[in-house]
């Protein structure tokens, strides 16, 4: 919510908890990550590029959140089920804020909706864009595979994203900085969770170790794409608003090396999945898996564009 003054208003304690937080013995004192944040677009950055950059980070979180949510009711046990759902929800929260920021920076990126549609801009971006307009990196698109593939992908994704968010927390865009500061705490836990399971699977049974080793090539085939700068990323980084992924490659490599080393797993270079027609996920060139994912994720919203949820 943005007031006319250009500052974000908190809706948390009053609206979501029903007015009087003292009714609740536990679970109060929620905080709106954007409360009081200056929402003006900083000088020296092209609003179109800022919007595109927010879509990149937001789509990564949205698509990966949906993939992780597919573990609901299917995880190895109840505790892991809840852990993966929590991680998915954290990422969904980041996606919502980032897509809303994209829409605020450039309303032109939001798909046109029928007159009278109550769909907010971030939902229109999530549920009414075709696959070629998504800017997510291809790492987050393929099916989950088994638990080992899930853990390896989560380790790579969260290590990469945490490094990006840590730098983004000092963005000149106050909204991006606040979203990143919130995300750092969340993704730190995701990385910790993935790292512990990586070690456990590697040092567990013969079965768990062989599955972990088998999970490395398909996941790390998208490694190079993560650290290849898109022109938009280069530009927003130069403007002090975004982060160029190539800048975090070295520190991500150090963290991964630590996890592999303590787990007794050797890291080999695996064949990389290169650009398609000169582009990758950031350009809207995706794997087939994304189309299937979106078909399922968007079908209900698209059938009821005037629906209220």
């Amino acid at each position: 919510m943005t007031t006319e003054s250009g500052f974000h208003d908190s809706v948390y304690d009053e609206d979501l908890l029903g007015g009087d937080a003292s009714h609740w013995a536990f679970g109060t004192s929620f905080e709106d990550p954007l409360a009081g944040v200056d929402t003006t677009i900083p000088d020296g950055v092209d609003p179109e590029e800022l919007a595109a950059y927010c879509l990149m980070l937001g789509d990564d979180a949205l698509i990966y959140s949906h993939r992780l949510s597919e573990w609901c009711s299917r995880a190895p046990d109840l505790e892991e089920d809840i852990a993966l759902a929590n991680i998915a929800l954290d990422l969904l929260g980041q996606a919502r804020l980032l897509l809303a920021r994209a829409a605020a920076a450039s309303p032109a990126v939001v798909p046109a909706m029928p007159e009278g549609s109550p769909v907010p801009p971030e939902d229109a971006l999530a549920f009414f864009r075709p696959d070629a307009q998504f800017r997510s990196t291809r790492l987050v698109e393929p099916d989950n595979g088994d638990f080992a593939v899930t853990i390896v992908r989560l380790l790579l994704f969260s290590t990469w994203r945490l490094a990006l968010l840590e730098r983004l927390a000092s963005s000149r865009d106050q909204v991006l900085a606040a979203i990143a500061a919130k995300g750092v705490k969340e993704v730190t836990y995701h990385r910790d969770y993935a790292g512990r399971w990586f070690l456990t699977l590697a040092q567990g049974t013969d079965e768990s170790r062989s599955r972990l080793l088998a999970a490395l090539p398909p996941v790390f085939a998208f490694h190079e794409e993560l650290f290849t700068d898109h022109p938009v990323e280069t530009s927003v980084a130069a403007a002090g608003v975004g982060v160029a992924p190539s800048d975090v490659a070295a520190e991500v490599a150090v963290i991964l090396e630590q996890v592999f080393s303590v787990s007794g797993v050797e890291r080999h270079d695996v064949p990389q999945i290169g650009p398609v027609a000169g582009g990758t996920g950031r350009d809207g060139r995706h794997t087939e898996a994304l189309s299937h994912l979106l078909a399922e994720m968007q079908s209900v919203a698209r059938a009821h564009p005037l629906g209220v949820w």
Binding site: F26, G27, T28, I82, R196
Partner: peptide, 24 residues
């Protein structure tokens, strides 16, 4: 209560299962 393989995992699981709503 919950199930976990060891003490560390029990704390992680407890965080996920019992403190999701800012309880702790």
């Amino acid at each position: 209560s919950l199930h976990a393989a060891d003490d560390e995992m029990a704390l992680r699981h407890a965080r996920d299962v019992y403190t999701r709503r800012n309880e702790g």
